[in-house]
Write a protein that binds this DNA or RNA. Structure first.
Length: 589
RNA sequence: GGAGCCGUGGUGUAGUUGGUUAACACGUCGGCCUGUCACGCCGAAGAUCGCGAGUUCGAGUCUCGUCGGUUCCGCCA
């Protein structure tokens, strides 16, 4: 009873197969019943092919079976591949030149009418699609995306294997740490009242693997964070997690950019030139107002503070006297914006925290601006020159603290690029952002926090800033940015005991507190730790970019909703009293 | 934690200033049909308008609450 087994896939049948008898397995995508002949588009993961069900070939009994076929029935057909008759070629189908004239039909599984049309599932309410995820997965879009994901992972593995990396798994049941994101917690039955945590990342384990002597490690690491979600954030996600020994920053970056270049070439056929451009964090903020700049279009931020330092215009004078900055954008061709459009831009700027948005429309005879009358001829001219304003351009200025101005203009820049359609969607602009701040002052906590994590090494020349001016210290950290999206980040780690102590001190931890939390980890460094560093890439985000999807849910086979529910399996759920009893857990209320 | 949007036959949508038979397309079911490919033609079934309160003579429509989905801010590397 094996004659139902396929000899070929639907999507691969071509004219060259004509005359062959083949067997196909798949789902009924669509049926067109003309009475004395039935056409069916048969679907498997390779694609579609038309099969012809003709009573003269099938015989009356089998044709009666064919009449029962409905959408999503799973069938097996055996038949002869034939070129389609003159004028019947369907050039919308890859297999449109041929059809299978079926002589043997088996229904392997009948199907209820599905709750939505598989072939236009993307229009359907997302809650319904998630409940019947296994049906949505049959759609062309999701099939292609999940296959793209597979090819990407395969390309990563083959590259890293070729570079001498070992794939090593690390535990999922680990110890909770208060730093960073909220942990998912797992109660222990054997240790009542104690809990495991699911890893936010395998950070400490991969460093311990370096201390364990494996030199080059990677893993497709599942990570968990119990935080509020977004279109590009899931409670569980996958990182391409990498760590290397006996390397400096340049070597990690070189190896990793070659990996991404390899993936883009393998998966998308895109050729990227090496080396990838590098931008310091400071320069990224100065020029793009973002720590992950999208360089597919220009419209860079320009600082005009120095030209307006002596202005009598209140806004400028106040800004300068409070050590603020005045920066701007040149919106090419923006002088033709309507007043309404400009007002909307101002509203946007204000909603982002700006006090206001100043604008200058450069026309043939004048510079049109509500604040022109407050400015001298020289000042107007300086603004126009510094921003390289030409007739037809719209110049936008924002004044305030450096951080605020950068943020507002950076976001305005992206919004304008989208609105004006300045972005070439075919580009793949990769760049490194380096020399990150090591520490960031947290007003709420009243202390410095690690910008990356507490084991990130400072730049050699900045080590002494740990005590003298911690906020100024830069880190041996690097982020890889693709088209304005952070693909991944990493750092060279601290391997010196004394430097680690100074780092904890800067973070306001005593060594006792540090040992309490990370004792096993710090102890490991006392037994011979190689210099090492690594990086982690968000695999889901990478796939999202490669597949050009708007949501990370589209690139995960079984994603959760924005409220972290799985609508298919209905998780999370209550558990039985017996389970709770075993865990010595009682619920409040 | 905060703000916005969405929820009407199985699916996607329409539904006027609140007004009595909730419309259309696809799908489903039945009939016809031998070259369709979004097959076509004829006919039929299918909705307590997410749920709960309120306003009103009367609510799919207005108000409040609630549930679910989603987008953004906070949060999260």
């Amino acid at each position: 009873m094996t004659e139902w087994k396929r000899t070929h896939h639907c999507g691969e049948v071509r004219k060259t197969f004509a005359g062959q008898t083949i067997t196909l397995n798949g789902w009924v995508n669509r049926r067109r019943d003309l009475g004395q002949v039935i056409f069916v588009d048969l679907r498997d993961r390779s694609g579609l092919v038309q099969i012809v069900l003709d009573p003269e070939v099938l015989g009356p009994e089998q044709f009666a079976l064919a009449e029962r076929l409905r959408s999503e029935f799973v069938i097996s057909v055996q038949g002869i591949v034939q070129e389609r008759p003159e004028g019947q070629v369907n050039d919308k189908m890859a297999t449109g030149e041929v059809e299978i004239h079926v002589s043997q039909l088996s229904i392997l599984s009948e199907a209820k009418t599905p709750p939505f049309h598989i072939h236009q599932a993307s229009d359907v309410d997302e809650a319904l699609r998630l409940k019947y995820r296994y049906l949505h997965l049959r759609s062309k879009e999701l099939q292609e995306t999940i296959m793209l994901r597979h090819r990407t992972v395969a390309a990563v593995r083959s590259y890293l294997d070729g570079q001498g990396f070992l794939e090593i798994e690390t535990p999922l049941l680990i110890r909770s740490t208060p730093e960073g994101a909220r942990d998912y917690i797992v109660p222990s039955r054997v240790h009542p009242g104690e809990f495991y945590a699911l890893p936010q990342s395998p950070q400490l384990f991969k460093q311990l693997l370096m201390i364990g002597g494996f030199e080059r490690y990677y893993q497709m690491a599942r990570c968990f964070r119990d935080e509020d979600l977004r279109a590009d954030r899931q409670p569980e996600f996958t990182q391409i997690d990498v760590e290397m020994s006996f390397v400096d920053r340049d070597e990690v970056m070189k190896t990793m950019e070659d990996m991404i270049i390899h993936v883009l070439s393998e998966v998308k056929g895109v050729q990227i030139e090496s080396p990838i451009p590098r931008l310091s964090y400071q320069e990224a903020m100065d020029r793009y107002g973002s720590d992950k700049p999208d360089t597919r279009f220009a419209m860079e931020l320009v600082d005009v503070t120095e030209h307006l330092g002596n202005s009598e215009f209140r806004v400028f004078a106040d800004t300068v006297s409070t050590q603020g900055v005045i920066k701007g954008l040149n919106v090419k061709g923006g002088a033709s914006f309507t007043r309404r459009q400009i007002d909307q831009l101002s509203e946007q700027a204000v909603s982002m925290g700006a006090k206001g948005l100043m604008w200058f429309a450069i026309e043939e005879s004048q510079i049109r601006s509500p604040i022109a009358k407050f400015l001298s001829e020289q000042e107007l001219d300086a603004i126009r020159k510094t921003l390289a304003g030409e007739v037809g351009d719209l110049l936008l200025l924002v004044a305030g603290s450096y951080d605020l101005v950068s943020d507002v203009l950076g976001r305005l820049r992206l919004a304008l690029a989208k609105e004006l359609d300045l972005i070439d969607e075919n580009l793949y602009n990769l760049l490194w952002v380096v020399d990150w701040p090591l520490l960031v002052y947290d007003e709420e906590a009243g202390r410095y926090m690690a910008a990356h994590h507490p084991f990130t090494a400072p730049l050699d020349e900045d080590v002494d800033l740990l005590e003298s001016d911690p906020g100024k210290a830069r880190a041996k950290a690097y982020d890889l940015v693709l088209n304005g999206v952070e693909l991944g980040g990493g750092s060279i780690r601290i391997t010196s005991r004394s430097l680690q102590e100074r780092m904890f001190a800067a973070l306001g931890f005593s060594m006792e507190e540090a040992y309490d939390q990370f004792g096993y980890f710090l102890e490991a460094f006392e037994y011979g730790a190689p210099p090492h560093g690594g990086i982690a890439f968000g695999l889901d985000r990478l796939i999202m970019l490669l597949a050009k999807r708007q949501s990370i849910r589209d690139v995960i086979a079984f994603p959760k909703t924005i409220s972290a529910s799985d609508l298919m399996i209905e998780a999370p759920s209550r558990v039985s009293d017996r389970q709770l009893d075993e865990l010595k857990i009682s619920l409040r209320d």
